[in-house]
């Protein structure tokens, strides 16, 4: 795909995102399925692998604004940005997933998502498109994805020609240790409730 074409696609993303509507929708594989059966993902590519974030959790997609570094924070926190008066942390997704950090380019974007009622910015190399997948084509995360901790994988979507790793970024702000602590805590409390 030409870069200019990609850019155009990105611009129109916001429009596409809103276009969830009437009755049946075409998946990216061309299947016609009813609206309830479809998963829509905002997708981006890291090192040749496609990743997708559920469109319902995505607030908006930004070009890179000025990022203020946050001291004394986990290494994958790129900093904070000013989003219309809100101070929002930005996670460098590459670093968080254990890839080599890369330079920001013209193509770099920040995907603003909402997790645990917090707004979080995800710094990604690019945002390619919105992908529609039939939910029956989404498998549980059995496939081992190189590098990415299974913590963040909600499932794998099968398209005709490729796979899309569907991400669950509820815990993207936390370090691995913190995530573990959190889980233990939940286990403990749910244990209590059961008894």
């Amino acid at each position: 795909m030409e870069i200019s074409e990609l850019e155009k696609q990105q611009e129109s993303l916001v429009l596409q995102m809103g276009k969830v509507g009437d009755g049946t929708v075409k998946t990216d594989d061309g299947e016609e399925v009813s609206e309830g059966q479809i998963v829509q993902l905002v997708s981006f590519t890291l090192d040749d692998v496609s990743y997708g974030v559920d469109i319902l959790s995505v607030h908006e997609i930004l070009r890179i604004p000025q990022i203020t570094r946050l001291p004394n924070c986990p290494f994958f926190i790129k900093g904070v940005i000013n989003l219309r008066g809100n101070v929002i942390p930005v996670v460098d997704v590459r670093v968080r997933f254990g890839f080599q950090a890369a330079k920001m380019t013209e193509m770099s974007r920040i995907i603003v998502i909402e997790a645990e009622s917090k707004q979080i910015g995800l710094l990604v190399d690019n945002v390619s498109s919105v992908i529609r997948i039939k939910d029956s084509n989404v498998d549980p995360p059995t496939v081992f994805i190189d590098g990415v901790s299974e913590e963040f994988i909600a499932g794998v979507g099968r398209l005709k020609d490729r796979l899309v790793v569907i991400l669950n970024l509820q815990n993207v702000l936390y370090t691995d240790q913190e995530i573990e602590d959190k889980k233990n805590l939940q286990l403990l409390t749910s244990d209590r409730k059961r008894k």
Partner: peptide, 15 residues
């Protein structure tokens, strides 16, 4: 502006 709103408390920072 609180950092906790969208993030958490950061050591040494009040906001």
């Amino acid at each position: 502006k609180s950092l906790e709103t969208n993030f958490r408390t950061v050591e040494g920072l009040a906001g």
